[in-house]
């Protein structure tokens, strides 16, 4: 039973990754900005399915909802903007240099990835004395939560969540300040 599911899931991973790569290439290379944004949605839903098959249902739920909201934001930015088609590319020399640098990074990264253990071994959990083993072993006893991810984000590593709340707060303040309507008038008025 277990052998069959193991054999089944590797082609699923490859198919989903290829789907995401094809969607990314279309999103990068298409001229129409709206279809490129919709391809981003395809990548996000592919990633959500991938998380589901990687045994991470928490992230799959979050990713699929975040993707919907992100699509709303992106479409809000691109729709009803008349000049979204940009033809032509940058200077030839700059493009060549960028592509060469990106290729060098790719080759170096492939070399580094070869030193990793093969796919399917939990790299952190296999290490002796790693924190992950403690979380799995003692998570239920110490925190009482059956969902180990919840016990990690809200009990063991709650500082991470506090930092996340701060970053979210800051990004909203930034968006509000950038998009406020009366910026010029408020600047001209003297402080009270």
């Amino acid at each position: 039973m277990m052998e069959r599911t193991v054999r089944m899931e590797m082609p699923i991973f490859y198919a989903l990754l290829l789907f995401m790569i094809i969607a990314t290439i279309i999103a990068v290379e298409t001229k129409n900005l709206l279809s490129s944004v919709i391809c981003i949605g395809a990548i996000g839903f592919g990633a959500s399915l991938m998380f589901l098959f990687l045994r991470a249902p928490d992230i799959a739920i979050t990713q699929i909802v975040v993707e919907v909201l992100g699509l709303v934001i992106l479409i809000r930015a691109t729709i009803s903007r008349d000049r979204t088609f940009i033809t032509g590319d940058r200077e030839f020399f700059g493009v060549v240099v960028s592509v060469v640098v990106v290729l060098v990074i790719f080759l170096a990264g492939i070399k580094v990835l070869e030193t990793l253990p093969p796919f399917g071994t939990a790299v952190f959990a296999e290490t002796a004395g790693a924190a992950s083993q403690t979380y799995v072993r003692e998570g239920l006893e110490k925190t009482g939560a059956a969902n180990l991810v919840a016990s990690v984000i809200l009990d063991y590593r709650a500082y991470d969540t506090l930092g996340e709340a701060t970053v979210l707060f800051t990004s909203i303040i930034g968006a509000t300040v950038i998009l406020r309507r009366k910026s010029r008038k408020l600047l001209e008025e003297p402080d009270i």
């Binding site: 909201l69 709303v72 934001i73 809000r76 930015a77 925190t143 009482g144 939560a145 919840a150 016990s151 809200l154 009990d155 709650a158 969540t161 709340a165 979210l168 707060f169 990004s171 909203i172 968006a175 509000t176 998009l179 309507r181």
Partner: peptide, 30 residues
């Protein structure tokens, strides 16, 4: 069960929901 984890979950849910609603509201008000 699980002590403070449900309380923190409620707080985080309130915070994330309100912030994301605010972001979309601000973007659509522009």
């Amino acid at each position: 069960s699980a002590g403070t984890i449900p309380l923190s979950n409620i707080a985080i849910g309130l915070k994330v929901g309100a912030s994301l609603f605010l972001i979309i509201l601000v973007l659509s008000m522009f």
